[in-house]
Amino acid sequence: MNSTFILINIFALGCLTFAFIKDKTKTKQSLIVAIKSFIHILPTVLIIVILIGLLLGFVPSGEISKIVGKQSGFGGLLLIALAGAILHIPALLSFPLAASFLKSGASVTAVAAFITTLTMIGTVTLPLEIKELGKKMALLRNGISFIIAIVIAIVIGTIL
């Protein structure tokens, strides 16, 4: 039990109570949306959880830090940033995964790069982004996002 857990649950219950008093039908709709997204995300939660178990249980931490640790340099950073840009993992679930990377010896810089490219850049949603916003805007947004993700990661690695 920690404070984040307690606060977020109190906040959620507070919102729910307030919403229920204001509009019962809308609250019901919201609950259905929430339950559906829970069912939808559950298999991925289990995948991530098993993956983390295997990662921390099998891979010796020295091996991971060789690829994406402090001594791996810019190449490792580019590699993990690229992985984050290509992989399609729900953003919410990237944080526990990132935590397990840190535990197994990845550097703060690498983890920050991974999360930032994962959330900012969407290769799976790129066709839709191009369709809705045009090629120029979509490619500029994703391309520049990659560069600033690297910069953010390096700065975080220096200050933390």
Binding site: I8, L13, S37, L92
Partner: peptide, 8 residues
Amino acid sequence: AILLIMGL
């Protein structure tokens, strides 16, 4: 809790 807040 997070999904509930998102739904609302």
